[in-house]
């Protein structure tokens, strides 16, 4: 069983949602990335979403845009991101790692080389924000051949035929974008989101993660009642951006995530 499938099976038994923090690889420093991943796990993160920086992140809000710009200015390259995952895996073999980014840097490396290198490094899933299922059939096959889950997005605007396409092509989980907007934007109407996700969950037969617009423990608790996973990105990236040293960043990440961990662990997942 893959790490992602194992995690979701275990949490289904425990009756709760997963907490998945997002951080941009190489921010706030090159040396902080791997220690931060370990610190987030030590504080209770169930999986890690690691951002692959891109020069033109058109679906991201200012927090993640700036983090990508800073990481690229430090010289972060895709191979470095994969190397950090490999390094993380030397002492952690159980926590799923999902890479999130845009298609062009992956294509520049070559999808086959990327999939092989990512599998060797210990990557479990890949989200490419601008690769729709229609355009990504070939890529999804290559990733799955290497045992990596191609994770697609669904949005409030997605109709039934798109849900069916994602169902036929995605694996691991489906990432539900909770609002019509970019990462880090204003909060969604959670009652509406949760109702839609409950419906999607039945149609898809895959775990559903909810992300975009989740910034604090209260929202995490609310979302965790009806999702298989809760993704928190921009709010964490903002905390890290303000840190002068790696020690500060690790302390800030731990401080930030602890109440969110409490929130998922004390919330019962309903209707799964």
């Amino acid at each position: 069983m893959s790490r992602l499938a194992g995690l979701f099976a275990q949490l289904r038994d425990a009756g709760r949602a997963a907490l998945i923090p997002f951080m941009t690889a190489g921010d706030p420093s090159l040396t902080a990335t791997v220690p931060l991943m370990h610190a987030l796990v030590a504080a209770g993160a169930d999986a890690i979403e690691l951002g692959m920086p891109f020069s033109d992140p058109m679906a991201d809000g200012p927090s993640i845009q700036r983090a990508s710009e800073r990481a690229l200015a430090r010289g972060v390259k895709l191979r470095m991101v994969l190397e950090w995952v490999r390094e993380f895996r030397t002492t952690n073999s159980h926590t799923p790692v999902i890479l999130m980014g845009y298609l062009n840097p992956v294509e520049a490396m070559g999808i086959t080389s990327f999939a092989e290198a990512a599998a060797t490094a210990g990557v479990d899933g890949v989200i490419l924000v601008d690769l729709t299922p229609e355009e990504g059939r070939g890529e999804a096959v290559v990733l799955r051949q290497q045992g990596i889950d191609p994770i697609f997005l669904l949005a409030p605007t997605s109709g039934p035929e798109r849900v069916a396409t994602v169902r036929s092509m995605g694996s691991g989980f489906v990432y539900y974008v909770s609002l019509r907007g970019i990462t880090g934007a204003a909060q969604a109407d959670w009652a509406e989101v949760l109702e839609r996700v409950q419906h999607l969950h039945r149609q898809l037969g895959l775990p559903v993660a909810i992300g975009f617009g989740i910034r604090d423990a209260a929202t995490v608790a609310r979302v965790a009642t009806g999702a298989d996973a809760v993704v928190v990105g921009s709010a964490l990236v903002d905390q890290l951006a303000a840190c002068a040293t790696d020690q500060d960043a690790i302390a800030a990440a731990t401080r930030f995530i602890e109440p969110l961990v409490q929130a998922v662990r004390s919330t019962e997942r309903r209707g799964a």
Partner: peptide
Amino acid sequence: GGRFVAETLVPA
């Protein structure tokens, strides 16, 4: 060509 965008835009 094609259509390489975030999911939110596909229906639009």
